[in-house]
């Protein structure tokens, strides 16, 4: 389902010391716009505050890999925050640690001042999450799945029922609400997961690749819905590798590569005069020159 690295097996190659140079010939990480170095303590006034968040897989073994490397970031309330990076850059791993799915090796994450790993239940009530690379209870219908997500959070039946119908309508899934999720297409799955993430009206939405495989009409509807939500004070974190989408939709953006934060700030601050895509490619590197590429790839 996902091209992103699952939380257990990062694909990125990196030495355990974390000192590996991401670009051949240069020992230093090239960074873009970054806010002044934050203090050691998480900021309780931010919607999300990460401090030194680190995940090392296979610690102490030969295949030890640093998936996320001392990530510190503050997301203000009401922000529509884009998290961009290449496949395997550590986006999903970082978001999993923020949402309580994956215990960090080191570092802290808070949501509105609540420590995610100190008081997980309170933190989880404050956020709605669309995880990537996770499955659904596929034998349930779409309507049952959203209802389940609401009831698991201890909501009362009438509210759950009302909101479930509203969400199905918003996601254009009313007609398919009674169909088992296993008969859904990839885009429909994303949408029903999104609905399940929103049913308890959280203050923060963490959405990992929410638009993957979603049709343009639904995507536009969802985008509008999220923008209204952010305008009313809700905070959205969206991970994506579609730069155009992030540039159009988000007001803030963070660039992650090899588990490190390369740039963060408002979209204008990060991209400067060029487009976000150009800035990103420039920061991350790794473009092969087209001319030297696959010379045999021509129609005969």
């Amino acid at each position: 389902m996902s091209q992103e690295s699952p939380p257990v097996q990062p694909t990125e190659q990196e030495s355990p010391s974390g000192a590996a140079a991401p670009y051949p010939g240069s020992g230093e990480v090239r960074t873009g716009f970054l806010p002044p170095a934050p203090g050691p303590e998480p900021d309780p006034n931010s919607a999300v505050s990460l401090r030194g968040l680190t995940k090392v897989f296979g610690i102490g073994t030969a295949q030890s890999k640093i998936a996320v490397n001392r990530l510190s970031l503050d997301v203000p309330h009401g922000a529509f925050y884009g998290l961009v990076g290449r496949n395997g850059a550590g986006k999903t791993t970082a978001l999993s640690m923020l949402t309580g799915l994956l215990r960090p090796t080191e570092g802290r994450a808070t949501v509105s001042g609540i420590d995610v790993w100190g008081d997980p239940r309170a933190a989880k009530m404050a956020m709605g999450v669309l995880p990537d690379g996770m499955n659904l209870f596929e034998r349930l219908s779409g309507r049952q799945l959203v209802t389940y997500a609401g009831l698991l959070r201890g909501m009362d039946r009438d509210t759950v029922r009302e909101r479930t119908e509203d969400l199905l309508r918003a996601m254009d899934l009313t007609d398919d609400g009674g169909t088992a999720v296993q008969d859904y297409s990839a885009g429909m799955r994303k949408k029903i997961m999104l609905a399940a993430a929103m049913v308890h009206a959280p203050g923060l939405l963490v959405l990992d690749e929410p638009f993957e495989a979603v049709d343009p009409v639904s995507a536009a509807n969802i985008r509008e819905l999220l923008q209204d939500y952010a305008a009313s004070g809700g905070t959205v974190i969206v991970s994506s590798h579609v730069m155009d989408l992030v540039q159009r939709m988000c007001d803030h953006v963070a660039v992650v590569d090899n588990g490190r934060l390369l740039a963060a700030g408002t979209v204008e601050q990060v991209r400067g005069d060029s487009s976000l895509e150009e800035t990103f490619v420039d920061l991350v590197g790794g473009r092969t020159h087209v001319g030297e590429g696959l010379t045999w790839l021509r129609p005969r």
Binding site: F137, L140, S141, R143, Q144, T147, Y148, L151, L152, R153, G154, M155, D156, R157, V160, R161, T164, G178, T179, A180, D183
Partner: peptide, 24 residues
């Protein structure tokens, strides 16, 4: 044919987290 009306068993059991797990 396979359509599930309403929320199925979720409608019949109490609206509590444990009961939701039971329904599922």
């Amino acid at each position: 044919r396979n359509r599930i009306k309403g929320a199925g068993l979720f409608d019949r059991l109490p609206a509590k987290p444990w009961a939701a797990v039971t329904a599922r």
